[in-house]
Design a protein around this nucleic acid. Sequence first.
DNA 1: CCATATACTGAAATTTTTTTCGGTATATGA
DNA 2: TCATATACCGAAAAAAATTTCAGTATATGG
Lengths: 137, 137
Amino acid sequence: MEIRKLLTNFVVRKKKTETMAYEKKIPVDLDCPLRLTMSLIESKWKSCIIDELRDGCPRRPSEIHKCLPEAAPRVLDMQLKEMVEDGLVEKTIYPELPPRSEYKITELGLSLVPIIDQMLKWGEDHFDIFERKYGKK
Amino acid sequence: MEIRKLLTNFVVRKKKTETMAYEKKIPVDLDCPLRLTMSLIESKWKSCIIDELRDGCPRRPSEIHKCLPEAAPRVLDMQLKEMVEDGLVEKTIYPELPPRSEYKITELGLSLVPIIDQMLKWGEDHFDIFERKYGKK
DNA sequence: CCATATACTGAAATTTTTTTCGGTATATGA
DNA sequence: TCATATACCGAAAAAAATTTCAGTATATGG
């Protein structure tokens, strides 16, 4: 019974992790418009990626990595992949060697920029409060 | 060496988990205004809590729980606690029995409402895309 | 031939977040 | 006396997200 439970958990976990690498189980939250929007951008780096690509210029993965050096490249890859699936970003693969690909923000992705902007502005306007509260390392 | 490493990890993990219940280790991300704003609202239910309290009326925890039945009560408690720490919400405890307390959005919390609104609107405007893409259970 | 740069991947480790469970306290009304 | 309602808490389990590691492929330049 105990072993069976452990085994089941292991299998489930394994499967989740596997699918996670390819596709989210529940990619977006359709229950509530607010959670829908949040679920598209709340991963650690997605809002930053949108901010990076907002000018409409295509970027190569290595450029994006350079701009967000704190993020593990693997995560950026995965989050970009999800954003492509969600239609926020489009990807072009050039059949060259060494390989080259580019990510470019879509119309849909651009429509999120005003939200990103407001969050940027809010962060700037209230930075001092939180620096006083949590700052100085 | 191996044991030492495991032990260290254990201690760190334990400590992290313990503090987590009381306070976040790095409560907000001060490195970037965008991540700062995100870090205040990106937890699963925080944006919904703000939306719940936006009218300025104080709410008792049990009312908030009722409005967000999908969230585990424990999480709402913890997220409310963090929001109080961050200054987005204020809490009043009435010295009565059975216990009574109320949460009310602050000025700072209210200043996030326009962002919440924009996300709500975006979610409504683009719901159909994602329902077509990911919907129908 | 060999190191390099590039984009990408699977697997596993680690960290963080969320959930579940079992408990605290005490006035009130049956 | 006893169940009820209320707000809350600690510990641990479970789930999810992130990071790290060790690889794949192949044209190009030394």
